[in-house]
Design a binder for these strands. Sequence first.
RNA 1: UGCCCGAUGGUGUAAUGGUAGCACUACUGACUCUGAAUCAGUCAGUCUAGGUUCGAGUCCUAGUCGGGCAACCA
Length: 560
Amino acid sequence: MAEQEERVSHFIADMLAQDLSDGRHAHIMTRFPPEPNGYLHIGHAKSICLNFGLAEQFGGVCNLRFDDTNPTAEEVEYVESIMADVRWLGFDWGERLYYASDYFGQMYEYAEALIQAGKAYVCTLSPEAFKAYRGVPTRPGQPSPSRDRPVAENLDLFRRMRAGEFPDGAYVLRAKIDMSSPNLHLRDPAIYRIKHAHHHRSGDTWCIYPMYDFAHGLEDAIEGVTHSICTLEFEVHRPLYDWLLDQLPVPCHPQQIEFARLNLTYTVMSKRKLLELVRDKVVWGWDDPRMPTVSGLRRRGFTASSIRTFCRKIGVTKTESVTDIALLEHCIREELNVSAPRVMVVLDPIKLVIENYPAGQVESLEGVNNPSDPAAGTRPVAFSRELYIERDDFMEDAPKKFFRLKPGQEVRLRYGYLVTCTGCEKDPETGEVVAVTCTYDPETRGGNAPDGRRVKGTIHWVSAQEGMDLRVRLFDRLFQVESPDDTPEGGHFRDNLNPNSCREVVAKGESVLASAVPGTRYQFERNGYFIVDEKETLPGKPVFNRIVPLRDSWAKKHQG
RNA sequence: UGCCCGAUGGUGUAAUGGUAGCACUACUGACUCUGAAUCAGUCAGUCUAGGUUCGAGUCCUAGUCGGGCAACCA
């Protein structure tokens, strides 16, 4: 994993290096703190690579911590998928698996301490009134009538909140900071709310739960995190993060650092929207190969290392940006080009009949498994009089630079013979081409002519008799526009879905694929990279997912 | 008409007061038993206006544009 050892340099790495050399910290501790309310996506992968990568780079550690302070949104299914995804991405949290819910007791003590210090109060305002009193960004807020409630009364009320004496929403614990602050988050934010909800870990022990702003800094401090790295939208929360840690006798005061989240063209990244696609069955599930989720990318066929490479290449900054999905595709092609075994598969088959080849004869030719890796060896490929070739590889009326089959033109059948196109057969009703005909030169076995003549085109093929049917899914981008979130007035991001994001075809492939192992990635020559689907493949009946097509400069030039 | 953050080719990033570089994309050409890969090349950038300085992408001021902030979500 050479790319992992490569030192990454960006403003956060610089800050950590500085803190280390200044002696501000003797070691680094970061954390990846997902809320288990959905599956991880590639944006999380960026954060995972950042946090675990930084720890690795500076000889520190990175914790995996579930920020599970809102029981109504969280589920164990998500906890499990998140752990599996982080592991799959290649990171190890060792013994440092934590849950915010494990700190509920300590957090409660801190909350009482804040009340004792006169820095928090129980507020009776309804959610609507709460909002009204808070004011708007341009106008200061008004103090809650509960703001000056005596400490003893606050304590009593808070204890009764915990005891379950009140219904949801009846009271809320608020930090007492500054109702006229230009930063809304400092206008006496709610820090504990009543929620009579069953928690996936703490069960029914609690009916009050801490809010993010109260909990997160404490979680960091309890664990001894040195650098708490999060995304830009938390920047305005930082004064509150710092205020809280300054008020309480915490073991340390971690530093919050913000960076820009990842955005990708042709997809959406919000958990809410991804959940909507799953719930409404727009996609097959969280691991649909078209989803930008880690599990979706995995099923699509992306490797963990290609995702890590991608995360290294996009960099870390505070600039809001949208990364071109082409970069991700580049990363997987780059890797698979050297590692994936080649095989011939015809996705849109049409028959090619070699008129002068003996009927019934079958010979075995030799195909190279991986041109960039001689050790991968060769395989036998059956050849006969009737083959399948791609419909696109024949044109009756072709442009001058069409190097494939057209009447009178000679091409090479990969690893086979040179053949010259003699014409085609058409359906008399529809006029559709049903077969292409040619003659072969017996002297060119293997693909080279003894007289040294050269042909410009080489096409792939599969023997009609010996080849096998293959289920192949051709995926395209889930959305047909670069920014699916940009919708006109009254529009919805779903209006931008690509109706052709998945097309399944029955292809013809080499028979070796009958024993293809689920999870194996191939290059279908001249087509693209494909993976044997791990969920739907049955013994002898592989199902393939297209990871990414090969670049195709000819199609690009001649499309439309 | 509040506060915070940001602004470098089409895209993503580097340059930490001293030659604006890299990658992706696009386009050329060479090569090729994958119209792939590879190789060579081309197009293309410091938001604006002032200021400081021998020298500014970098520092200062003002503006412009973009993003974030008004869940008892995280």
